[in-house]
Amino acid sequence: MEPVKPVKIHLKSSAFDAGETIPEQYTCDGDDVNPGLELDNIPAATVSLAILMEDPDAPSGTWTHWLAWNIPPSQTIEENSAEGVLGKNDFGTILYQGPCPPMGTHRYFFRVYALDIKLDLPAGSTREQMLKALEFHVIGSGELMGLYSKK
């Protein structure tokens, strides 16, 4: 039996357009709250959503800023929200921590996954644990990339 190819979810934000600068309020130079996200084309069979935000341009390798799972399926993830179960980011905290590059302009990828299950993971689990748990359960996914340079 062939694995199901995930549906493409259209992920966008009213705060910034794909490939554009993430506004300061969503970074360490501002309020450090997550931007609102809008999802279109979520598969009907979605049981939960998972989110991952990371910076592949960090000096030490890809840096995780935000991860959450078991978010109820919805067209919107509100600004400054803590929906679902939060994982541990690479700052060592269990919350959203926005862009804060030490130098230069970095890319920040927001990824959303539509899952056919709820993940059986405790709060504070790592990126690797979340990605392993969602393997074989992704029925849709989307991505939004924004840029940021520290002030």
Rank of each mutant, 00 (worst) to 15 (best):
G19A: 09
E135L: 04
W69G: 06
D116W: 09
S14I: 10
D116N: 15
E2Q: 15
T64S: 05
E143C: 10
N80C: 09
K88C: 11
F110W: 15
E128K: 10
Y113H: 08
G142F: 06
T64H: 05
L49A: 03
L52W: 09
T62A: 11
I94T: 14
V112S: 09
Q75Y: 13
I94N: 09
N41Q: 10
W63R: 00
Y26V: 03
K8D: 15
G124Q: 07
C28K: 14
T27V: 06
A18H: 15
D31N: 14
S149Y: 06
N89M: 07
W69Q: 02
M130R: 04
D57C: 07
I9C: 02
P35I: 00
P122A: 01
E20L: 06
F109W: 14
P72V: 11
F110M: 08
S48L: 00
T105A: 09
G140K: 07
T62N: 10
F136K: 14
Y148E: 00
E20G: 11
A58W: 12
T64C: 15
L37V: 03
E20P: 04
W63G: 01
K88Q: 14
M145E: 11
V33T: 11
T76N: 12
A68R: 12
V7P: 05
T46Q: 07
G146K: 00
A68H: 02
G140L: 04
F91I: 05
A15I: 03
D116S: 13
V7W: 04
P101Q: 01
T93D: 14
L115G: 03
K88Y: 01
A123C: 01
D32S: 10
N34P: 09
E54W: 09
T105K: 13
R107K: 12
G87Y: 03
S125D: 13
F136S: 15
E143L: 12
M53T: 10
F136H: 13
L131E: 13
I117V: 15
S14E: 11
D31C: 06
P23E: 04
G61P: 07
C28S: 15
L115Q: 05
L49S: 05
L52I: 11
P99G: 13
E128M: 08
L49Y: 06
I22C: 09
W63A: 00
C100F: 08
L95V: 07
A15E: 10
D55A: 09
G146P: 02
E83L: 13
D120F: 02
V4T: 13
A15N: 09
W69I: 07
I9T: 08
G98A: 01
T27R: 08
G84R: 06
G84I: 05
P73S: 03
D55M: 05
P122M: 04
V138T: 12
A45R: 13
C100K: 09
G19P: 04
E83K: 12
Q25H: 11
P99I: 02
E20I: 00
H65Q: 10
M130C: 08
W66P: 03
P122T: 07
N41W: 07
P102G: 08
L39N: 08
A123V: 00
I117A: 10
Y26A: 03
D120P: 05
A45C: 02
V7C: 10
K150Q: 12
I139L: 02
V112Y: 04
E135R: 11
N41F: 05
G140M: 08
I117T: 15
V138L: 08
K151T: 14
V138Y: 01
S141V: 00
E83S: 12
T21C: 02
S81K: 08
E2L: 15
Y96V: 05
C100P: 01
